[in-house]
Computed example of a mutant assay.
Amino acid sequence: MDPIQPVPPPGPGVHDLSPWGLFLMADPIVKGVMLLLLLASIACWAIIIEKWGTLRRLRREARALAALAAGARVPDAPPGRADLPAAALRAGIPEWRHGQGANETDGEYRARLEAAMRKAVAQEVRRAEPGLSFLATTGAVAPFLGLFGTVWGIMRSFIGIAASNDTSLAVVAPGIAEALFATAIGLAAAIPAVIAYNRIAASLGTLRGEALSAASDLAARLARSAALPEARPQLRPAE
């Protein structure tokens, strides 16, 4: 029995079909498309991680604002703090201390308090939105950018086939594989971006609704305390 012969090393005609090898073999334009998609994917993941932490913080602040609206005391907002309860108090407490105007009904007074507090809360939630447009743009454009790289790579492969007059699979496959790799990278960048955009946008919408509802409840408490002088000592901001 003949001994097992070692496998000879790949010769110069053997193509490296690993992802790195496909990148190295690609046309310069296709390489540029791949690098652009890779950078977009890294930026998307950075935004996703940052928004995940921001959503956790906003959920805590929305719960704190709801607890504040249901509590028995309204503390002063620390001047240097930037969160939902502090924003609502900074907007509402001056209006509450100013009191109801002579030509203002109870409903108008409450509406003024509520509008000021809801506006401040909405502005604070809106600070979490930057970056979402990049996710949406990447999700919409990345597949087409990868498709452009694929079309360009296949076109170049057909030109090479025509020049060599060789249509064997060994000649055709590497060029088509490196071209299709660009589409794969485009999809890998677009799919997480689309999923993350939809989830983050939906979560922000829910948090905005909860925070605005809590701000309305707090404004209603402040308006009632202004209408009931005997209740003011319990609801007056703490010194």
Rank of each mutant, 00 (worst) to 15 (best):
G11Q: 09
R97I: 06
S18E: 05
D217G: 00
R56I: 13
I159R: 14
T206N: 10
P10H: 14
S18D: 06
H98D: 11
R73G: 00
A188I: 07
A70S: 02
E114T: 13
R221M: 10
I29K: 03
I4L: 15
A46P: 10
S157A: 15
W52C: 12
S157K: 10
L169S: 12
M117Y: 03
R236G: 09
A67E: 10
P94S: 02
A122W: 04
P94C: 01
L65V: 04
T137F: 09
A142L: 03
E61C: 02
G149F: 02
I47H: 06
S216C: 02
A72Y: 00
D166Y: 13
L207H: 01
A179H: 11
D217L: 10
R90M: 06
G101D: 07
G32Y: 05
Q234H: 13
A87T: 01
P78Q: 00
G13H: 15
V194M: 00
R112C: 08
M25Y: 05
A223E: 02
L68N: 00
E114I: 06
A64G: 01
Q5M: 15
A116P: 12
Q100R: 14
G153C: 08
Y197I: 08
M117F: 07
L36S: 09
I93E: 05
I161P: 11
A214C: 01
G153D: 01
I191G: 04
A122H: 07
I42G: 08
A43S: 12
